[in-house]
């Protein structure tokens, strides 16, 4: 499939900035608008844009379906894992206060970790759903 040259070149230029923006939204979510849900969707949007312009095969060379299928449960496991670690350290499930020396630091670390879990599950689910629809059409 031959697409517009401008579209291809612009996509190539814009992709790294999309990834950068997703990471910014993820790690700046504590101080400004953003967080795991938004960052996950933006990161998935990057892969989807790549697949729309360069084709599904090119996108699956970067992010193969097998990887996506492993990442979907991994995010949930990271989230639950934070809860389990909190339990093993003597707190309740998902009580982040016990994760670090003092409770404020523990809370902050816990929020960062569970946002990571959210990012992984949301991004991989969106990419996985998109792959499933596109593969069905071939």
């Amino acid at each position: 499939m031959k697409l517009d040259l401008i579209l291809r070149v612009t996509t190539k230029i814009i992709l790294p900035f999309m990834l950068l923006f997703a990471l910014y939204v993820q790690f700046h979510g504590d101080y400004g608008p953003g967080g795991g849900f938004q960052a996950g969707v933006i990161a998935a949007g990057m892969i989807i844009l790549y697949a729309l312009v360069f084709g599904l095969r090119a996108a699956q060379r970067v992010v193969p379906m097998s990887l996506v299928q492993r990442l979907i449960p991994l995010g949930v496991l990271i989230y639950a894992g934070v809860g389990i670690v909190a339990m093993m350290k003597g707190g309740e499930f998902l009580n982040y206060s016990v994760l670090a020396q003092n409770s404020v630091k523990g809370q902050h670390e816990g929020i960062l970790l569970i946002e990571l879990g959210v990012l992984v599950t949301v991004a991989s689910t969106m990419v996985g759903i998109f792959y499933a629809f596109v593969e069905r059409g071939r």
């Binding site: 504590d30 809370q107 929020i111």
Partner: peptide, 18 residues
């Protein structure tokens, strides 16, 4: 004071309503 996160939406989402 409790989480040192200025964005209240993030702290409620992650911690208070984890």
């Amino acid at each position: 004071p409790e989480t040192s996160v200025p964005n209240v939406v993030t702290s409620v989402l992650g911690s208070y309503r984890g």
